[in-house]
Amino acid sequence: MIAVVAQLGVSLLSILALAWLAKLLNLGGDLRIRDEDHARRLAQEAVFGFVATDIVIDRAGMGALLKDAQGRQMLLRRHGAAFVGRLLDRRLEARLDQNFLTIGTGEKTFGSITLNLGDAAQDWAAGLRHVPA
């Protein structure tokens, strides 16, 4: 029993050391959404068939909002060294504060993100009232 606990303790220390090494080596980098083409591609990857027709990107490139011809709206946000996307529905929570739009998908574990959308923030906040059920 003691041997098993010791083995698990060593395993725990090893995984912490490996994660620390990944951080020490600065792995992961600093990914940002570069431009509309990049955002469009990420959205298509997140939901196959989502062809964005209207895009607004956070000033720092940390996320984006996109619409397609069917009226669907997608939130893209950074997740570690990758991006994740969600189609927005009635569960969304949005809060506008001047140029900053804070959006939650209603999924607790997905969290919320505050996007600096500049002058476009108000229009996009209004557009969120029309997401599908």
Partner: peptide
Amino acid sequence: PEKYEPKDTLTSLAFG
């Protein structure tokens, strides 16, 4: 460098 992500690595190893 983007092939690894420290938090992702920690999660994977914690799974193990």
